[in-house]
Amino acid sequence: MPTSANKINLEQVRHIALLARLELTPEEEQRMLGDLEEMLEYVDKLNQLDTSAVEPTAQVGDIGAAAREDAVTNPSDPAAILANAPAARDQMFRVPRIIE
């Protein structure tokens, strides 16, 4: 991990917010910078542990029915699904123009 002095700066906060598709106000950016600095400072303690010979754990528990028949089991109900759409037309979701 980088040293605590340069963990994160405002530029990075803006970059991360763009990656996360979040629009932050200038006040939110400042608060986020402080909160992330504090959290990154805290998680630094993981560096006290030598994990060079340790395998990562991504999943625990049993792996159950990992493979099954790829069959449609749910009823098709486009009307109910589109009822949740913020904007729909005919049987489609409406989105802003993406091709100029």
Partner: peptide, 9 residues
Amino acid sequence: LKAQKVRTL
């Protein structure tokens, strides 16, 4: 990845 290794420990 570091956190996942600590998870193993």
